[in-house]
Nucleic acid binder design. Structure first.
Lengths: 143, 143
DNA sequence: CAGATGTTTTGATTGACTCAAAACAACTGT
DNA sequence: ACAGTTGTTTTGAGTCAATCAAAACATCTG
């Protein structure tokens, strides 16, 4: 059960990130809640339904502002356009269906920050570890 | 010290994969050995130095044939064009420098196929797990 | 409510890659 | 060695996702 987020709290999130509150930003942030792992194009189509004047560039601008301010995260699975989600700050990963491209979150639980310490890092300082799982979603297993 | 691979063995690899042996393919395969994690564009530039008539599309074609036949692997780090390497069949991962984009191989050693079993896979069947580490390479740590 | 700053629109442009048809070259069998 | 079949490369166009820049506009500050 997902309770609708009060629109005031969306505005608060945006303001708290040091950004001006605008209609496109409110719309993108709300849609990102309802449909995580959306592409810019998909967000644009949905935003447009309620704010017909909105441009695709505006959506890219909003997403750049959000990711820059740390209130949204951009993920780029191989072969897919970038996807965006609101869930930030936790070390979580993704599983992508190789057949239908469905994406789900995966909490990384092998210890705490699993795989975060590669055995041989060739002298690199590791900041983050990003894991992408590939497989078949329940629907595609059936088919 | 890297010993040059006899060109006959390159041809053998290609033939063994069920592909016809051609000059562009030999060149790409050899360069892939010398410079792993190269982009198509970079391979093209290098191939062109010795085979001036070669087209970029030919390089894309060669890479598609190689990856399809399993004698090369394509990796697609976020924000980067696709990179190619000859090392295939082992579960190895990559570390990317966030400053200069240098890429190194990382042998995954947390157990055997680490992170390969996500805690909650939402009913997905997991086939592969791909890990990308992000950090600073030795040179960029100094700077 | 006016001003400074930040956002969005409009329009052009790029980078990476894909598609398709025609010309060409590699392996087969003789 | 050579002709035929098949697969590869060239040539040329086109797509998709994303970025850049200038002008018009809206938001928050005082």
């Amino acid at each position: 059960m997902r309770t609708a987020e009060p629109s005031g709290s969306l505005a608060d999130s945006i303001r708290a990130a040091g950004l001006k509150v605008t209609a496109p930003r409110l719309a993108v942030l709300r849609i990102l809640d309802q449909a995580p792992h959306s592409t810019a194009e998909r967000l644009f189509a949905t935003v447009r339904a309620e704010l017909p004047g909105t441009s695709l560039q505006a959506v890219y601008g909003v997403l750049a502002a959000f990711t820059g301010a740390g209130i949204a995260r951009k993920i780029e699975p191989a072969g897919s356009p970038a996807l965006f989600e609101r869930r930030v700050g936790d070390n979580h990963h993704h599983i992508v269906c190789t057949r239908c491209s469905a994406v789900h979150d995966v909490d990384c639980t092998v210890g705490e920050a699993p795989c975060l310490t590669p055995s041989t890092a060739s002298g690199f300082t590791v900041h983050t570890a990003e894991v992408t799982y590939w497989g078949l979603c329940p629907d595609c297993q059936a088919a």
